[in-house]
Design a protein around this nucleic acid. Sequence first.
DNA 1: CGATCTTACGGGATTCGTAAACATA
DNA 2: TATGTTTACGAATCCCGTAAGATCG
Lengths: 311, 311
Amino acid sequence: MNVSTRQLQAFVALAEQRSFTRAAALCHLSQPAFSALIGQLEEALGIRLFDRSTRHVAPTPEGLSFEISARRVLAEFDAALAGVDDQLARRSGRVSIALLPSLAAGWLPQILQRYRAQYPGVEIEVADVLSEPCVERVRSGQADFALAAIRADTPELRAEAFCSDGFHLVCPVGHPLATQAEVKPRDVAAYPFIHMARTSSVRQYLDAAVHPLQMQTLMEVDQLATAMGMVRAGLGISLMPALTLFHFAQPGLVTRPLNWPGLTRRIYLVRRRDRSLSLAAQTLYEQVLADPPREAPTRTATSAPPRRRRS
Amino acid sequence: MNVSTRQLQAFVALAEQRSFTRAAALCHLSQPAFSALIGQLEEALGIRLFDRSTRHVAPTPEGLSFEISARRVLAEFDAALAGVDDQLARRSGRVSIALLPSLAAGWLPQILQRYRAQYPGVEIEVADVLSEPCVERVRSGQADFALAAIRADTPELRAEAFCSDGFHLVCPVGHPLATQAEVKPRDVAAYPFIHMARTSSVRQYLDAAVHPLQMQTLMEVDQLATAMGMVRAGLGISLMPALTLFHFAQPGLVTRPLNWPGLTRRIYLVRRRDRSLSLAAQTLYEQVLADPPREAPTRTATSAPPRRRRS
DNA sequence: CGATCTTACGGGATTCGTAAACATA
DNA sequence: TATGTTTACGAATCCCGTAAGATCG
């Protein structure tokens, strides 16, 4: 006992048109084929749906009652198809990403602005957290993909290189290193240093880069803005990746690119290996991949503010 | 772009089972055939619904979203089929009949009592009106069929003989005709007569039966109970069809069958010619036809009360 | 007699199941 | 290697459209 949607559509067309010939035309079928379709439906249901004489077609009482059921089925059916279309056209959907706060503040907005303009129906969730929780969110399924400084290539996760992020010296105007011809690790180690927390990727890169030297750790802070304030107040100096420099475009501060070999933070695009991305996420993923941050958002070594992006 | 319910059922089965093999078994299909079904659905919708490796099957985000739509469609679908089954089993439905008050009070209750016991889900509407409005209700579609004293055979309506109803003399105990050997039309014409209204079928039969004689019309009443009261009070006599005699089973009254040739009220079962009856109506129709009133509900000529039917 | 639904029938596409190939843990 | 999905392919089925038949106004 199999009833197809085509039969329901044929039935509704016949109930509307009250003529096999016209209804068959609506369904793009020959009239005998259409007649057979109705006949099969009646046989499958076990009831007669139409009283038909050669001159007149009218629904039986059971046909009238079945019509409202059939219309409900078809309405749900169309809604389901429309839902698929919405997702195909990215008119609906949801994408959840996790990424480093530095990317979230400086680079992400322009990406999302364009994405949002193209696909206004898609819900967007952003988690601006450190690399560890970024990866954890992808693993747990909370986030579709992440941008993090951990090469998280596991059986579950797949990571691909996204961008690299050169380090810059951050110091107050007038500091000896602000104008020194070349800045080497041992120069940095000579001054009090403002560190980020040990869990941050920045910290881990720096510890590795100056090895076996030790920096003069003045303090460890969690927020970049805090580090900025400390440096501006003359408490110490710091080294920061280029993507964070917008925090340090402040009067009284100087940033200078360093080109120490090996001191480049690598950022990875991390996603689950087994699970495919939703269409909305896949689209954003591709746009992210196609438009990584510029290598050096600021090239000025002096106090000139970096180029601002429109808000 | 054609999507069948089988594909939706297969999809839901796979979403539940997360295994092509098990889901195929549930759908009574070989595994390759089942796989093709899913593949066709994905192609028709234009989206991938499942991430599948040889070891693991899991819905994509689009698949998850489509699953709730598909379940809604199938739920409506099942509801539609259940509605048909209900009507087939007469667990639901509606039947509307129109019939003469005499039949409605005396004979119909036992019919409906049995019908109701068999099919408690069917709504029943009864119009206990005179023959004219009975037929009119069938013509207008208000009633599925009617029992009336009019042979309403028109292009629209089809009438078939249902039962015939012999007339009885009704007079007070002690009236000369109560004991007279044989009662002829001229005997009746000799006494004051209590008539029913001119629109009633009874009246029309009587006028024809005594022709060319004229009865002594004392009054015309609309209700049988009123006529009964008048006769019991000794104001006059009357002639009534057997089906109405339960009104006259009263102390002080005598009823006697008459066997005047031609004086038999014929009652017809009337239905529309073009429109088929609902299953509920068809069933009642058949029960009605199979169980007409007995020819003579009372055979006693004296004041013995007629046999009562259980309420 | 004309319009309309049903039945008859041949050709073509679809779908099924078996068997082999392929992929992952 | 073992389990489970996809591909290949021959056979049965189903479905469509043309043509003829039946029926009612």
